[in-house]
Write a protein that binds this DNA or RNA. Structure first.
Lengths: 342, 342
DNA sequence: TTGAAAGCGCTAACAC
DNA sequence: GTGTTAGCGCTTTCAA
């Protein structure tokens, strides 16, 4: 790996560094013969530009960071995949920042945007990873797009489903099926999406004239383990729910596992609905009824928006709402008229 | 984001750029009072170094690329998580390269090491992502470590389980349980790991005096969909297997799904064993018997090795074998003496 | 059409 | 202990 630079191939061809640079970047600005000679020499010498130098000079790194709470969650990794695709098409690389929910790490990653290692950040978390002075305009911030979550900054571009409506839809499905004792296992209650879904849940229940049992609202995290814990807690209650709305598919998987371990049948005894529609949801046993989030669309929109901002084309409308969809599968069951306690 | 540089804070404090730089990096080389003044000014001005410039100057980017065939596979994402952790501890960031199996993209990502955007690469694929001249020593190559797979270059540092032994162990478990009609659904047969596991399978069968039915060796990919296709193919056979060794847990999940759809019970009618032990394996229904790979250890070893190489400490022994472990759960069943056709 | 020269922001000899 | 200086490898006016 003898590092060959512009200088070397300039020496070899007898042209100046400037001309070589032009031949490589602005082919039209040099004579045909020159370009050919330069290209041939560069090829032969195995020249690759030092992108660091290019970036320093052009003040563009060609990287974007995506800050994500957990890359091992397949909902997230599918979004990343979509981001990666769009970024690549537009000549950018993605720097992965798995924050594991730590604000400290989120901030560390966000710093890359300030230190010019990245041109912008896609934030899949609910808090801004740097301080924003009151009244500071978005344009002063590093290019940033907020995916799936909401930071409380209305002027930041934000992409996601309508979580309130999703909460409403999931709950209505359960209500439709005759359930009245409905529990929820929420995700991190600090997040806007969780709160919105919960609000949707409550509103749907109220609208149906059903009072929510306080014990039936379990606030934990988004993981499978949380689902296990939540389900155990719920089943230990004197008034067991007949249906559980889980705020992620992972939670739902955990709940179904726990229920199975306890000898409780899904959906025979308890119906389960998830949220996300991760790829495995339809292949689980039983196949999981869930609210589908269009991950490909979300990822693509995040990347497109961010790259547009970087290119100096901020969106006119900061908020992009992508459609969710109720996928009815086999983990929810219509209650018999006899069993329904209306 | 007025970009404040060393220059600015030098102007503010009245010191030279060099002194400011020293105060920030080599605190010992400047007077106490100076350092304090500089630090305060830097803090106040919100100074962040331009890492591009630092990298250009120091010829170290602080990034490593990890080239991975599919980030949405949780086996892989768990490895990434571990890599990320170690990298971060040692002051590196990880650039994610999801190649989706495309050699072209693998090469594009590997180029980052040449263009100095990254200091090294962790390769989770089975082919070298750049050309290596015959006889070219490893030291001439960009720092690279090969995880889980094998490129055919013996001198490249390589981390992974003993795939042959894993194939042997999985098959023996099935044999132990009285199965004789054992099928396999392999991963990508181009990969060394797949071939080794298959070799282990064949050897175990031969050693047990069982001849492998050619129709029982299905060569597909590592995905869940491949598992579905494989199981369908197998069950359409006149001589159905009583057990299937799937080369990934995803394949196993697919196979179990397909079997369930066909009304075939696992493990009642057919036993299934997977490979990887992804987090969901134990929570699936039925919980999946599988060969566990220590992803945390693999990821950590990959990162540690690579970073050591970058730091100029190449390993003495290129190959690191991490232990795998058979996890017996409920997807495999001991055949009754009556049912066993020995 | 080509080249000289001025930096991008920073580090690291080396001199003061 | 602090400042001067010379670049890292490249792009980009501007002049020839």
């Amino acid at each position: 790996m003898a590092k060959v630079g512009l200088k070397d191939i300039a020496a070899q061809t007898g042209f100046s560094i400037a001309t070589v640079s032009h031949a490589l970047r602005n082919p039209d600005r040099v004579a045909d013969a020159t370009r050919k000679k330069v290209l041939a020499a560069a090829e032969a010498a195995g020249y690759t530009p030092n992108n660091l130098a290019v970036s320093l000079r052009t003040a563009r790194s060609g990287n974007i960071v995506v800050i994500i709470p957990d890359i091992a969650d397949s909902h997230n990794s599918n979004i990343i995949k979509a981001i990666e695709k769009v970024a690549r098409e537009r000549g950018y690389s993605v720097l992965l920042g798995d924050s594991q929910g730590s604000e400290k790490r989120e901030r560390e990653f966000a710093r890359m945007a300030r230190t010019r290692q990245a041109d912008g950040v896609i934030l899949m978390s609910h808090r801004l990873p740097f301080d924003r002075k009151p009244g500071e305009p978005v344009s002063k911030l590093p290019p940033i797009v907020n995916g799936c979550e909401y930071t409380g900054h209305d002027d930041l571009p934000q992409i996601g489903i309508d979580d309130y409506q999703a909460g409403l839809d999931a709950t209505r499905h359960l209500l439709d099926y005759g359930h009245r004792q409905i529990a929820v296992i929420t995700g991190d209650i600090e997040t806007h999406s969780t709160r919105e879904r919960l609000r949707g849940f409550n509103d749907a229940m109220t609208a149906a004239g059903v009072t929510v049992n306080d014990d039936h609202v379990i606030q934990l995290g988004y993981t499978l383990e949380d689902g296990i814990a939540g389900a155990q807690q719920l089943m230990a209650l004197p008034s067991r729910p007949s249906a559980i709305f889980c705020f992620s598919d992972e939670i739902a998987f955990g709940a179904m596992y726990a229920l199975r371990e306890m000898g409780i049948d899904v959906p025979g005894d308890v119906s389960i609905i998830g949220c996300d529609n991760i790829p495995l949801a339809r292949y689980f046993s039983p196949p999981l009824t869930t609210i589908a989030q269009p991950t490909a669309e979300i990822g693509a929109a995040c990347a497109t928006l961010l790259l547009d901002i970087i290119d100096g084309n901020p969106p006119t409308e900061p908020r992009v709402v992508v459609p969710h969809e109720l996928k009815i599968r086999e983990s929810t069951r219509r209650l018999d008229a006899s069993a329904a306690n209306r």
